[in-house]
Structures are given as structure tokens and as C-alpha cells.
Design a protein around this nucleic acid. Structure first.
Lengths: 188, 188
DNA sequence: GTAGTCATGTAAGACGTTACATGATTCT
DNA sequence: AGAATCATGTAACGTCTTACATGACTAC
């Protein structure tokens, strides 16, 4: 449901093609919403039917022709209304945590290896976000307020991943007590 | 893909009905994976076909009949192998962040109201997890290691939500500078 | 009486991923 | 010569949500 609006917001800022949107979802936005080109083109069709966007066909000689989409008044209104809707805490589907719930069956070293691997991925992700690289938060921001909002969004990602990385580290530390030891419950 | 294994893990600990699983997903497990009964019954069918579980039909006089599922050897093996698979950082789909990206259009007070509402939800969630209530992490844990793992999983949730709550608070603070003010970029 | 728990299922639709499909231009 | 970029789409499949459907017993 949010996908339409994520796309509409971009199109409203600056008319765009499906291909442009695809790139947006691959770079900037990527950590809080994502979409493949399949999904993008299908959704563009729907939005066109709903008259939230209008298509402008552009012929190109050297490059493939393309369709630039523009937001309509109806579209802008729909976006505006949606932005004010209250939001729930997003459901998380966390494979690693499901694995951990049943990881009792694994040797402790294996579990630690798993957590380490995951931790490395978090580190990479954080490195990416901390680098200038990720100043790809679309840089055609107009107002100071908008700039502030985009920076805040990035911070959300960073602090979430950082929290999880800290958790990983402390969990690994705790697990080391179980390496090659059998610790009965309630041993005082 | 993880759903099968989340279910299988429970069934392996203790034979269960679809209804029992449903309750598990509503309580304990709920923050890192969730499922409705529709999905659960369909998935049980599939797992039966794959011979990961076996069905035991139980006739009851006062209550509706039920089907208790037991994990098979094949099922246990599948679970074991899956647990060792490396896990990616789960994709996040965060409606509030999409809304924030385009919230420049809203009066700052409205944005703050939105963030406050969301913050309250986080506080409720945290209160729930901090309370004994949430010792609903299935309490038939056998080994100390398993107990440690379940506690760790809960901590993951708590620290994630706590990090987001801190972020919300600091974002609100920052936004207050934009209430009824027009701040040009690069004003020194 | 009315809501809740126990207990099971089906059907339709929304949302998402992966694979299939094409083809010119530009960079290495 | 091979890979990447630009640019669009379709088809099949997998996953998830919402609504429809039933029915007895129990607690307030």
C-alpha cells in the first residue's frame, strides 16, 4: 500500500520514468522500502488508471524511448491524505531470530559463527550509510525542512542497525559461556 | 520460507494443533514473525505432504475434534539444515518513513503529532515486553542455553524498539525548530 | 443474551520475487 | 569482446491478509 505513495512522492518532486524510480529504490530509499522493476511498472499502470499520474511519451534517437510520469492534482491529494494517516509499528520478519529460537540444537560455536556472519553484514551496511556514498538521499531537496526530514530518515536506519549490532555483540559474549559446557538450570 | 520452520520448531518441541500455533504467533513469537490461522492451516497441509509432520486425530466430546501434529525425522532434519543457513538483514517496509519523506508538505505541528502517536505505540509495545506478561516466551524451555537464546531474542526486540523511540524523540526535538519558522538553507 | 474460547477450514485478492524477453549504445 | 547503462514489459510463482463460514461450550 505504501509503494504507490513512495513512487508518487518521487514523481511529484520531479517527473520520472519507471527506470528512474527503479534507481531510486536501489539507492536512497532502499533501506525503508524497496521494489523491483516488475512491481514498479505494474504499479505505474494502476496509478495511471486511477489518474494519479499522467504519461508523457518521449521519443529518443540514441536511447530507447521512454515514458515520463507526472503527478496529477488527484494524485497529489491522495498523497497528502495518506501522509496524515496514522502508522502502525511495522511487522518484522526476522529469519535470524527464528533460527535462533531453535538453535539450541546446534553446537554453540556454530551459533556464534552465524551471529558473526550476520554482524559483518550489519557492519557493511552501516559503513555504507555512514559514507558520503549515501548522500544519495536525493540531493534536490528544496527546503531546509525537507533536508532535515531526509537526514532523520537516514538516522533511523543507522540507529536501528547500530542497535542490532550491539545486540549481536552482547549475545555472542553471553553465548561463550555455553561453549563446551553443560550448565544446568538453577545451579546456584 | 521461515514460516514453515518457525512452526516446525514449535511442533518439534511439543506436538501441537494449528490452533495452538496460532496462539504462539499471537503472543510470544509475534514480534519477529507472525501468521494468521489461514496461513497456518495451509502451511500445515504442505508440511504434511512433504512428510515433515504427521497428523494425529483426536476426538473430543465437549470440544471440537482436533489434529495434533508431530514432527517426523525428515522434518527435524530439514529444520536442522535450515537453521544453519546464513541469514540476510531483513528488508524493512516502514510506512512511517515513507510518510516522513514526503511530509515536507504538512505543517510541522502535524508531523510532530504523527511522530508522537507513533512514539506512544512504541512505548506501549515496550511496556508489554518489559512486563512479566511477556514471560510468555514459551516457558517450557529445557536447557539453560535455550533459555538464554529466548531471552536474547526478546532483548533484540526491546533494543530495536528502544532505539526507534530514542530516534523519535530526537527527531521531534529537531522538528520544533521548524514550527512557524522559515529557515533558509545555509544561514550561518 | 453476548462475548470469548476452542477448533477447523476455503476463497479472493493484494503484494512481492524471480525468471523470461528484447535491443541499441557506451564504456573498459 | 564483454559488461554496464538505458528502457520497457510479461508470466509464473510464492507469500500474506481479509473476508466468508460453521458450531458447540463457557463465563459474565
Amino acid at each position: 500500500m505504501s509503494l504507490k505513495f513512495a513512487m508518487l512522492g518521487f514523481i511529484d518532486m520531479k517527473p520520472m520514468t519507471g527506470y528512474d524510480l527503479k534507481k531510486m529504490f536501489e539507492t536512497s530509499v532502499n533501506f525503508y522500502w524497496s521494489a523491483t522493476h516488475s512491481q514498479i511498472y505494474r504499479t505505474l499502470d494502476e496509478m495511471k488508471k486511477d489518474e494519479w499520474i499522467m504519461e508523457e511519451f518521449i521519443y529518443q534517437k540514441d536511447l530507447p524511448n521512454k515514458k515520463v510520469f507526472h503527478a496529477t492534482e488527484r494524485g497529489k491529494e491522495a498523497l497528502y491524505n495518506w501522509i496524515m494517516e496514522p502508522s502502525e509499528i511495522p511487522p518484522i520478519r526476522h529469519k535470524l531470530l527464528v533460527q535462533l529460537s531453535w538453535a539450541d540444537r546446534l553446537p554453540t560455536e556454530e551459533i556464534i559463527k552465524q551471529l558473526n556472519q550476520y554482524g559483518e553484514k550489519l557492519e557493511e551496511r552501516l559503513a555504507l550509510y555512514d559514507s558520503d556514498e549515501q548522500q544519495k538521499m536525493p540531493n534536490w531537496s528544496r527546503t531546509a525542512k525537507e533536508k532535515f526530514l531526509w537526514e532523520s530518515i537516514l538516522k533511523n536506519g543507522i540507529s536501528t542497525y547500530q542497535a542490532e549490532l550491539n545486540w549481536i555483540r552482547s549475545t555472542i559474549k553471553g553465548l561463550k559461556n555455553f561453549v563446551n559446557k553443560d550448565i544446568p538450570i538453577d545451579k546456584k
